[in-house]
């Protein structure tokens, strides 16, 4: 899936511009870091990508389909093509690991056989087969984030969007998460990751789009956090 941001501006109340007329494109299969300090506009950009919010001006195209043309009732269709990993994991506390992953398939009406087949596979991809029936409360931060990634991958999305996925976990777990994301990317899934973790960005040598006060101040093919 190719993604195009064209002249996107997002204004909140009192005319605060979270994003100010930004344009960029992401090719199919790319791995892109969106970096910047807190308040730079990273989370807003992610929210626009999953249509949790609407831009004030401009167009976002997914394979030439304008997101603003997608009706409210069809947002679920879009979200099935895009897997999302959240900083705060967003796991269902009342369900175990298996059920948390299965929900992504259940909402798209997959039958029980598919669920029983796919869930162990994606849990094995993130190395959590042994914790399949544990509740989220018994998992570490890194493990919770791996469940969140497994859930995002369950319906084989074209794009994986990760909003600060290492923000609430220790450095060792953060590296493990990055290795999983890199592996997913190598299998052909586009990965867009918002972060302000300098070490991670510097060590992976991927494309880096740097935001500052809602504007793109650099966009490098093999960039670092600073440049």
């Amino acid at each position: 899936m190719q993604i195009d941001f064209r002249d996107i501006t997002k204004e909140y109340e009192q005319q605060v511009k979270a994003l100010d007329n930004i344009s960029f494109g992401i090719e199919r299969g790319e791995f892109v870091f969106i970096v910047g300090e807190s308040g730079a506009g990273k989370t807003t950009l992610i929210k626009l990508l999953i249509k949790e919010e609407e831009p004030t001006a401009g167009q976002i195209l997914f394979d030439d389909v304008d997101l603003s043309a997608i009706l409210k009732d069809d947002i679920s269709q879009l979200r099935r093509r895009v897997g999302v990993v959240f900083q705060d994991f967003k796991l269902l506390e009342s369900k175990d690991v298996f059920e948390n992953v299965a929900i992504a398939l259940d909402v798209v009406d997959s039958n029980d056989d598919v669920i029983k087949n796919v869930v162990p596979n994606v849990l094995s991809l993130v190395g959590l087969t042994h914790k399949m029936h544990s509740p989220p409360s018994k998992l570490s931060g890194g493990e919770k984030q791996r469940v969140s990634i497994a859930r995002a991958l369950a319906h084989e999305p074209d794009v994986l969007i990760a909003d600060e996925p290492t923000g609430m976990i220790d450095p060792k777990s953060a590296m493990e998460i990055m290795e999983i994301l890199e592996k997913i990317n190598s299998l052909g899934t586009t990965v867009v990751m918002a972060t302000h973790n300098r070490d991670i960005v510097d060590s992976f040598k991927k494309r880096v789009i740097r935001l500052e006060k809602g504007k793109i101040i650099s966009d490098k093919k093999k960039g670092t956090y600073a440049q």
Binding site: E52, S76, R79, V84, L92, I103, V107
Partner: peptide
């Protein structure tokens, strides 16, 4: 009491009817 859960289910791609 299950508002957070409902938001998450929507974010992972559930239809309104689900």
């Amino acid at each position: 009491s299950k508002g957070v859960e409902l938001e998450i289910i929507k974010l992972v791609g559930a239809r309104n009817s689900y």
